[in-house]
Structures are given as C-alpha cells and as structure tokens.
Design a protein around this nucleic acid. Structure first.
Lengths: 190, 190
DNA sequence: TCAGACCTGTGATAAACGTCACATAATTAT
DNA sequence: ATAATTATGTGACGTTTATCACAGGTCTGA
C-alpha cells in the first residue's frame, strides 16, 4: 500500500485520517498473465491502481485484437465511461504480466467521498490524469504520421517501447504490424 | 445561466445553496468569431461552458493549422492539462462563431469546492465527461479507417458534420482536405 | 528436448493517402 | 455590386500503407 499512498500524495494533499477512511474502499488483488480485469459487456465498478506489472485495454472486432491503451505501475486503469455512467464496457482489460493491483470499489468510494472532501478531490485528480493521457494520445494521430508517432513514444514514453512487443504496439499506433517493423528498420538505419 | 444550471443538474445533484455559492465563480463572456479563448503559451485558468455557438482547439505547427477538438453548446472547453497542472498550453482555442460562454474561474472554483462537496463532485463529473470524449476520439483512430471515422461521426455526432466545414474537419479526422473530399464523394455515390 | 505458439522480418502487390496544381463555387468585406 | 478571400472539387503523380504469404527466430510448457 506504500506505493499507493505516495501516488495519492503526489496528486493532492491527503491526511492520515483520509487514508484511514479510504482503507475499507481498497482491496489488493493479483492477476495472472492473460487474466481479465474487465470483460467486454460488463459494467466497470473498479479503479485498478497498478502496483506492479502492466495491463492493456483492447477491443476485439471480427476476431481481431486492437489495443487501445497500456497501463503501467503508478497508473490507474479503468473504463472511465463505464465506471462513471454504469454503461457496459465495449472493451477488455487484461494483465500482460503477473499483475498486482489495488482495487477501488466504486460504491464504497462514492460513499466515502461524500463524507471526506479530500477523497472527492483525489477522485477528481485521478480522472484528470486519465483525461490528460487520453488527450495526449488522441492528439498524436491528428498531428503526426505513423513514424512520428513512434518517435514521440521513443522520447516521451520509452517505457512502453521497452516493455511492449512490436506486435502489441502496432494497433496502438494505428498501423499494421508489418508496417511498424519497417518503420523501425528505417529508423535504425537513418 | 439557465442552461448551465440544467447542465449541472444533469450531471450531479446540486442544491440551490450550492448554486448560490457557485455564482461568484462564474462570469458570462462573449467572443466574436475568430477571437481566442486560449492562446498557445498561456496557462489556462478557466473552464469555458459553451452557452451558444461553438469553438475549436487547434495546434499551429510550421504555419499549418491542425484542429484537435470541437466544442458545442452544453459542453465544457478547456485545456485540461494546463488547467490542472498550471502548464503552458500547447494549443489554442478559438471561437468559430459568435460565442457565448460562462467562465469558471479556477482559483475561485477550487476555493469554493473546498467548502462545498457538491461543487467538488461537479468538477469531477465535468472532467469525467471530458475524459470520456477524449477516449472516444482517441479510440477512433485505433479501430477505424478514415472512411469509417467519417461514418462514425455521421451516426454518432451528426452535429459536427452539419456545423463544421470539410476543410476544418479534415485535420480532426487525420486526413488531407482533398482526401476527405474524395471520401465524401465515394460515400454519396455508394 | 521437442513441439507448438508466438514474434519478427521481408517480398510482392494493390489500395489508400498526401501533395501540388488549378478550376470553380461560395462567402465575406468594402 | 464587386472584388477579395475562403472553401471545395478534381486530375496527376509519387509515397505510404495494408494485405497476403512465408521464412526464421524466440519462448514456453509438456
């Protein structure tokens, strides 16, 4: 839980009292590699704080897997739309490695947040980080070519390139696996 | 202010008392067509509730304008990253029509939110909507081709196609103006 | 240690797209 | 009303990308 407390305090001021109040909201949970955190069609009632390992969100359309996000240590993974609105999720979240998470239960979180403003503020800040990340990757496609998107990741998010295989990365970058392989080859030669 | 109150109450329970407390946070402001709401390099200290008209966010890179978002009535326009973190904005927001907005002042909003939990919850929900929208458009690029992205807008966001010119829409969809023109022609003939 | 699954690279080919050039609306300003 | 500006359509051409096919490499579990 140490990592989580540090993470929270990097976002917002958080008293020991708030941390105590938050405890009943939290559950530690481990996932095996390839185990699902969230399944398409389910409603997402959790925020998954990633303590160790990483996971990804993906759509499965006509049997083809399309990766839409990767989530590493000290990030929150969730379906923000499903979590907020109670709608069924259109995508899956799966552990890409053995994964240790701390789960925020939605109902308990909302109850507790009504009583403790610091917890409400924490929730706002978690969502803000999530929104910032989405905006960042959304903008990539509007500003840059496939090769430039790869270069952007090399500079700004090298951890993704180090830990995610080329095949997995391709759909996230919006190109075919073969194309990404060729782009990478060009980059090495240049 | 009527529209704003309805908007707020569609998001979260909001007492008359909270609405009173919120008043000092709010300022009505009109923008002329092509007037900037936010300039690149500035820090964003406002949430712009769109009461009437619409605006867009855009990057200007090597003299070329790239549109990244459109914001219509009953939406909040802002730079979520700049607003939350105090970083300088990398993009502009400009009125595309004569625009009526209600501005939330950041400092006053945060002060007031500390005293009234309903206002903190409102902030969380506004950001949540923002995150959901970003995620939606980010996913489009990973799942669909340019033509499919256009079809998606036709079904899910026809208001964008009705109000935004083809040239403006092109960079938002991540294609050249000429390509979008040809895609549209194909769609009409099919 | 061996088979099966997954990952990466590469060639061939067709399709999609970007860019430049220019013509023709449509809109706006004077 | 008319000129200027902006928006759209279209052809030509080169570049980038998707798709299919297949070979070789790596990892993993029986």
């Amino acid at each position: 839980m140490d990592n989580l407390l540090k993470y929270i305090r990097s976002l917002t001021s958080f008293s020991d009292r708030s941390w105590e109040l938050l405890q009943p909201v939290l559950t530690k949970k481990e996932f095996k590699k390839n185990e699902l955190l969230l399944r398409q069609g389910q409603v997402c009632n959790s925020l998954f704080y990633i303590d160790n390992g990483y996971c990804k969100s993906y759509y499965e359309i006509d049997g083809v897997v399309k990766n839409t996000g990767f989530f590493f240590e000290n990030e929150i993974a969730t379906n923000i739309n499903s979590f907020g609105d109670g709608q069924k999720s259109e995508f899956n979240i799966v552990a890409c490695e053995p994964l240790t998470t701390i789960i925020f239960n939605k109902d308990k979180l909302f109850q507790t947040a009504q009583q403790a403003n610091e917890i409400e503020t924490l929730g706002r800040n978690c969502i803000r980080l999530f929104a910032t990340k989405q905006e960042e990757f959304s903008t990539l496609f509007k500003l840059y070519s496939a090769q430039e998107r790869l270069e952007y990741l090399e500079v700004k998010h090298p951890e993704i390139l180090q830990r995610v295989s080329l095949s997995q990365l391709a759909s996230f970058l919006g190109v075919a696996r073969e194309t990404l392989s060729r782009i990478r080859k060009r980059r090495v030669l240049e």
